[in-house]
Amino acid sequence: MARKTHVQTQLNGEPVEFLCEARQSLLEVLRDELHLTGAKEGCNNGNCGACSLILDGRLVNSCLVLGVETEGKTVETVEGLAAPDKLHPIQEAFLENAALQCGICTPGFIMSAKALLDTNPNPTEHEVRYWLAGNLCRCTGYDKIVRAVLDAASA
């Protein structure tokens, strides 16, 4: 078995330590080592966005980040978004707008939308569509997702 490296990172506001092989992606580490399965594997090559999360304040595909690269970094996943007694406004907007069907792409869309609204709190519909183009959804036709993000922005 390949050698494992000890990594310390900040995950959803908490310090976390884990061991991983260099070849394990951040997505694999989250899912298989830390059992945080909110980020999903849809393609494992950066083309669907189901594994989107925020690394050091920037949206990334976690399938294209090595676990070892997160040493000393800050990772935000969908599991860290809601307060204990209250959903994040983007999560609320997704529910209110029925912006999910099967839900597999939803965590990625929500993290992508959060990264958008963190940098651009009042996006136009086109800006939302441009920003979210890396997140594929096959169920909704995107209509209600785009509306949910616009709603969350105006909330």
């Binding site: 690394l55 920037r58 990334v60 595909n61 441009y130 183009a133 890396g134 997140n135």
Partner: peptide, 9 residues
């Protein structure tokens, strides 16, 4: 180049 998440890296 790629989508927003790709452009982050």
């Amino acid at each position: 180049i790629g989508g927003t998440a790709i452009q982050g890296r």
